[in-house]
Amino acid sequence: MDFNLVNIKPCDNTFFGDGNQFNFDISNLIKSKNTPYPSVFFGAIFTAILTHNDKFRKAFFQNGRYDHESILKIGQIYLFNEESKSVYIKAPMDLFANSKSEISFGKFKNNAGNLNSLSYEYILEIPAGMDYKRIENMYINIKNIHDSYSKKQGIRVELKDENQLFVKNHKIGIGINKNTKKTEEGKLYQIEQTEFIDNNWSYIVEYKINKDYLKNSIYKEIEVKNLDKGYLKLGGENKPCKFKTIYNDKIERFNSKKTGNLNSGIYKILFTSETYFPKGIDSFFKKNNIRILGVSNDKPIYIGGYDMQGKGTIRKMYKGYSAGTVILVEFNNNSNTKDIYELLKNDSVKGFNNCVILKEDF
């Protein structure tokens, strides 16, 4: 596997914004995500690399080109239970559960006769029978993805609700007038904070330092070492986290099963991280001769950030798709899964657009 793995464990509760601008007229609660956007881990890991490589840090800031996106690549982000050694990602959005916690699969059905401007050719149907509802805020064991999930064996799928992994805390804040420096009436608010439910849980992040780029740049005389162990800061409040390099055979097996050739036919693309396309999803897939047949997703997310080179200016906000989104597609020509993964990754940066491609059998 090309990527290194770093285990990151927050020392305290954290705040991870969701990209939406806070408005007192709508709510007085600022919500925190369970897992931050991949770009947050990108910033934290790159800062840790700078901190632990003195010569590189000096050269990077003297360089002034801010070529950090060429130097560091972020892959998949996982949730890790140190006691069971199990690894999880966001669960696919074509899974349903009933009141007895029985898992079933939604089925994409041809809807060509009822198309409108907002529709795709296939829609996801709720399983027949009991009171099934699409799962929300759940996580799936990665060992299930290429096995019980791809084979539609619901009884073998292991899911965990977010409440089994995270707890939410709240702290009170109050708005201050920038001119008078006094508190403003009606500007009392709550900040939601995220914390793992116990000390067994942590994040695992795939990262890679682009050694080839470094060798052919102004850094060619500088050795840039991978991370070992130490502390980094994460999230909107820069909370300290312990980190250490690890190896995980489950992640190794998960990634090894991604490779292979794709014959012409219908497949599911499962987004395993937040995903966005600067020119739109339809434009991206059409450009690469892939036809979208259907989508199962949640409400849109909004992905922005800050531009280091622009002195902290806010970047353009993009409309995106949550991890767990399922896209039904048709490949018309033989392709290689590696090529598709690379196309998706190249259309974004900083750890977005990770996915798994699985054959869909009707």
Rank of each mutant, 00 (worst) to 15 (best):
F108E: 01
I191W: 05
I77M: 08
N248M: 00
N28W: 10
I71C: 13
S32L: 07
K187C: 09
K258H: 04
K311G: 02
F60H: 05
S101D: 10
D307Q: 07
N7F: 05
T47S: 15
D228P: 00
K187D: 05
S322E: 14
I71V: 12
M138K: 07
F271D: 03
R315H: 12
S84V: 01
A112D: 12
Y122L: 07
I209G: 11
N216C: 10
L165T: 03
L79S: 03
I123W: 02
L5Q: 01
S335M: 02
F60G: 02
H52F: 14
K258E: 00
P36M: 15
Y120M: 10
G106V: 13
G43M: 05
N297K: 15
D198A: 13
I281S: 11
N288T: 10
G173I: 08
V349W: 09
Y120A: 09
L72A: 05
N13W: 00
H170I: 08
K279G: 07
E158S: 11
N255K: 00
G19K: 12
H146M: 05
Y231R: 08
G320F: 15
K73R: 11
F277G: 08
K58G: 10
D147A: 15
I26D: 14
S39W: 02
S202R: 09
Q164E: 15
K316L: 13
